[in-house]
Amino acid sequence: MTKVIDERVLKIYRDRIAYVENSNVTVDVDRSLPTVSIEAPDAEGFFMQGDEAETFIAEADRVYEELQEVSFDEACKAVASPYADLMS
């Protein structure tokens, strides 16, 4: 069954993704460890591991599956947007 996503919700996530991309923030996820690194030039970044990283990855998975129109990397950027905001 295909889930229909409200266009307003999709726009909010696309705006979050664009914000992270325009801020030159990089998000690196390693599921095997698990770790998440969120970094930007000239700013102190964030590094997560263990439960914190698993929570981030689970949220990115949820966004990816819910939206169906973004890549997993884009879903990670959407989830990382509050962190990017703190780095600006």
Rank of each mutant, 00 (worst) to 15 (best):
T26Y: 00
V27C: 02
V27L: 07
D28N: 13
D28R: 15
D28Q: 12
D28W: 09
D28G: 09
V29G: 06
V29D: 02
V29M: 01
D30F: 12
D30M: 10
D30W: 10
R31M: 09
S32Y: 11
S32L: 12
S32A: 14
L33H: 09
T35Y: 02
T35H: 00
S37P: 01
S37Q: 06
S37W: 01
E39I: 08
E39S: 15
E39C: 06
A40F: 00
A40S: 13
A40D: 04
A40E: 07
A40H: 05
A40T: 04
A40W: 02
A40C: 07
P41D: 09
D42F: 15
D42S: 15
D42T: 14
A43F: 04
A43N: 10
A43D: 05
G45Y: 03
G45M: 03
F46L: 12
F46C: 04
F47N: 11
F47C: 03
M48I: 03
M48Q: 07
Q49V: 00
Q49L: 00
G50T: 02
G50E: 07
D51C: 08
D51H: 12
E52Y: 11
A53Y: 01
A53E: 02
A53T: 05
E54D: 11
E54T: 12
T55M: 15
F56R: 10
I57Y: 13
I57M: 12
A58E: 13
A58S: 15
A58T: 07
A58W: 06
A58F: 05
A58Y: 09
E59W: 13
A60F: 03
A60D: 03
A60T: 03
A60V: 03
D61I: 06
D61N: 11
D61A: 06
D61S: 09
R62W: 14
R62G: 12
R62S: 13
V63H: 09
V63E: 10
V63L: 13
Y64L: 09
Y64W: 15
Y64H: 15
E65R: 10
E65Q: 13
E65D: 11
E65G: 06
E66L: 15
E66P: 00
L67C: 07
Q68M: 01
E69K: 10
E69M: 01
V70K: 09
V70P: 07
V70D: 01
S71L: 04
S71M: 01
S71E: 06
